[in-house]
Design a binder for these strands. Sequence first.
DNA 1: TACAATAGTGTGCGACATACACTATAATGA
DNA 2: TCATTATAGTGTATGTCGCACACTATTGTA
Lengths: 120, 120
Amino acid sequence: MSNVNDHLDKLMQELRRGTLTIGVLSQLSEPQYGYSLVTMLGDKGIHVEPGTLYPLLRRLEKQGLLDSKWDTNESRPRKYYLLSKTGKEVYCLLVGEWMGIVDSLNHVIQQKGEEENGAD
Amino acid sequence: MSNVNDHLDKLMQELRRGTLTIGVLSQLSEPQYGYSLVTMLGDKGIHVEPGTLYPLLRRLEKQGLLDSKWDTNESRPRKYYLLSKTGKEVYCLLVGEWMGIVDSLNHVIQQKGEEENGAD
DNA sequence: TACAATAGTGTGCGACATACACTATAATGA
DNA sequence: TCATTATAGTGTATGTCGCACACTATTGTA
């Protein structure tokens, strides 16, 4: 009910937007399946729920950034995803864009940011 | 349609999400009106259209992060926005979250990035 | 009159979260 | 052995909401 904490949550969620894509692409230089990605990313501080990740994977595949193949040899069939050639290029460009955003944001943040700062 | 460049654009746009809010909040330690913000931010590398900024300002005000007052003394009436007390707190928390995101993203990005070379 | 400055609104899109359903294997107990 | 349950793993439907974009409205000024 219009709580500040509530708004903060929304804001933070918005802030995270798009970053998950980079996170996923970054892990797919070698084939991974959905569940392993959830584990890997969670291990690196990027928590994502399966119900969020799977649609993202399919979206990226549909856009041609990922290739996928089913592995039915193992006990459970798993769908492995891998960066396509296009995906690699897009990933690089995306990282570049990300760096740019970080840069400009850091500029405006640092204008006022040394008054109460807990940087260690 | 379905061009790679097209997808890239979308991805980048998503990446920018939420960052505009930080940009705006960062400038409102002192009162600014919409049009001046467009100029200021654009000057700092954050391009935003009035039609994007105004709804954002009103949203943030409705959420209690901004205070506003009309200045009708000048030739044209201008609506000045300023960080509220809550806004300052949220801004700090948001910056903290931002730092965290930047940090984890940097980790996963740096994992790979030496194998591929100029994609052109 | 025309244009720039300034503010506002409406609509559509799309990623994400959430909840849910489904399958197959493994483990457990009767 | 067979039913039941847990869990690993994948897939889908829906709702929310911020943002981009294209509008409109007003006013001051050249």
